[in-house]
Write a protein that binds this DNA or RNA. Structure first.
Lengths: 341, 341
DNA sequence: CGCTACCATGAGCATCTGCTCGACCCCGAG
DNA sequence: CTCGGGGTCGAGCAGATGCTCATGGTAGCG
């Protein structure tokens, strides 16, 4: 892209570009003034400035804090067509890692929640850590609604209900609990439960959320779903056989982001991928090591808008993505990026 | 001014500034988009960007050709309220020096002359060198009019008539010669000459010029006025006594830019300071060494719009200006300079 | 507790900027 | 000489930007 600098540039042009760029960026003249000064039309000045940026005569450098990975974030946005990506600095200890990621997610929430916002909440250790760091400037009247059922071991702080409660407690607002397990025994049971007013109501609130806070689960033997007792080791193995690499709110997807139509899906009580897709801002939080395939798969499903994760996972996800080629949801976003450089 | 960088900047702010700046300058998002992303109003984003520029988080660097002195030029513009200043690189040999300065002036002329432009022309070795390098893209139908009388030693290439002729020859257009000496013996003689149709007409054309190309003369014993025989050594000494430090078109001024009302002024056949002031773009060309006091004085008269000179004089003039404090014509120009940094 | 001075905030507006589009020019082929 | 293609140019416009201003909130102080 931008190349040039002193070399391969007519010295006369070089001088003009430098003069005009200086006048514009340093002295703050308008393009029209510069045009008058140099006997050029305004569009001409604009083209010259563009050329100056492009050729490297103008170099716009951002002095970012060393702990930020803005380039990585940009690559993630790019690769998976995300609205935003936040890469937290790497930490050696898993707990520290989770903490910095959760803190970043909490900040994001603080910035985006408004009075009367509805937040759909998932489960997981990473999401569960977010409330600890969530402290909006003033108390908000949001609604935090569980978007999936709980695990058999209730009240662990990784349960959606518990996360909702903690968020509402720290930042104001109400918690809408979902009194149902994530997976039930049969489809019939699920349908019966969904008919329950309490269950249906909470899921309905969650479906109308403008923001979702969810984790991304893996398919290994130590994943949250297994640890929390939602799914057995055998069921998890079955999912792996079917190509599942990870889940979001219990919806399992394969490496290409396609939903895995397993028997489990009929027994899941949670917002569906479709439901998530209708939510304006779906924030996924991940800090656990070695989840790149799960993350890549879920991202390719195209339901996540904002990804908050640690640096190690970030790089790994990009590697996975470029290795398995398919790239991600086709990026349709325009590229206005060349205005300023 | 701009300080800050990593230090003395709340890390949270620092991160936000860096993120927003990156999004704006690197990714090319609009302020409104960024505002939406971060839950900020557009004006807020704009203020943050301003702060990012100001604090050095955003560094806009112009990679200028090494031979340019854009900062010096800026200081000159600033100090003397000039529309433009062009500093040519320093040369050891006086002739080389004159050449690079003349070349710069010629370029400036080329960029600013239009068909039917009228150019008032002064004298001097520096101005005299300009035609050699003047070569507009196409032949123009300008008029070059002598704005002051000639020296007794006619036809030296430093005479206005000769410079006009050379300019017209190289770039197209007509030369309006002024057939009169710069200084005559008496006021009466001057008035009589001014009544001559030929003389009056040329001066009238010069007065209607939109551009003037003039030199700046000193008051030392080897200055052009003396060398060309326009003024005697005794007359020059008298001028010095009266505080004169330099002249423009034979109009002598003191260190503060006030016209020196000597007997000579009544005997001068040339455009007056007032006349020059009415010309849109007065270009002064100086390359001769050791003229800083003359230059500073003339600049303070506020008649020059564009100054073309060598680096050594440039620095010296700025020194003189800051030493004699008065600064220059009061700068009334607005300062929009902080938009981009 | 009330008051004042200060500052941050976002609506609204005038200006500036990026871009599209038709006109024009130059150059080489036919 | 005529014609077409590529390229440059500036008018014009929609959208982005910088700035002003009225408002409201806050900290300091009586």
């Amino acid at each position: 892209m931008r190349r040039g600098l002193p070399d391969d540039l007519d010295p006369v042009d070089f001088e003009l570009l430098a003069r005009i760029a200086h006048r514009y960026y340093v002295d703050g003249r308008t393009q029209e003034e510069i045009g008058r000064e140099y006997g050029l039309s305004r569009p001409k000045v604009q083209r010259l400035l563009e050329r100056a940026r492009w050729s490297g005569v103008v170099d716009i450098h951002i002095e970012a804090p060393p702990w930020l990975q803005l380039d990585l974030e940009g690559q993630l946005r790019e690769a998976f067509n995300l609205a935003d990506a936040i890469v937290a600095p790497a930490r050696d200890e898993a707990d520290d890692q989770r903490e910095v990621v959760a803190r970043a997610a909490a900040r994001y929430l603080e910035r985006h929640l408004r009075d009367d916002s509805i937040v759909a909440v998932g489960h997981g250790r990473d999401a569960g850590e977010v409330p600890r760091f969530y402290r909006p400037g003033r108390r908000l009247t949001c609604t935090f609604a569980s978007a999936m059922g709980g695990s058999p071991r209730v009240d662990t702080p990784t349960n959606p209900n518990e996360i909702c409660r903690a968020l509402a407690e720290r930042g104001g607002g109400r918690a809408e609990s979902l009194y149902a397990p994530a997976y039930v025994e049969s489809e019939e049971m699920r349908d019966r439960l969904l008919e329950q007013e309490a269950v249906a109501h909470t899921l309905d609130v969650a479906a109308r959320a403008s923001v979702a806070l969810v984790g991304i689960g893996g398919t290994d033997e130590g994943c949250t779903m297994v640890r929390s007792g939602c799914l057995s080791l055998a069921e998890m193995a079955r999912l792996r056989e079917q190509g599942a690499v990870g889940d979001i709110l219990g919806n399992y997807v394969d490496g290409q982001g396609r939903q895995v139509a397993s028997p489990h899906s009929g027994r899941l009580i949670a917002l569906s991928l479709e439901g998530l897709r209708r939510i304006e801002t779906v924030i996924a939080v991940v800090s656990e090591a070695e989840k790149p395939r799960a993350i890549a798969g879920v991202l390719r499903a195209g339901v996540v808008d904002v990804l908050v994760l640690d640096e190690v996972n970030a790089r790994a996800v990009l590697d996975v993505a470029s290795a398995t080629a398919s790239g991600g949801p086709v990026s349709l976003k325009r590229h206005a990026a060349d205005r300023h450089r």
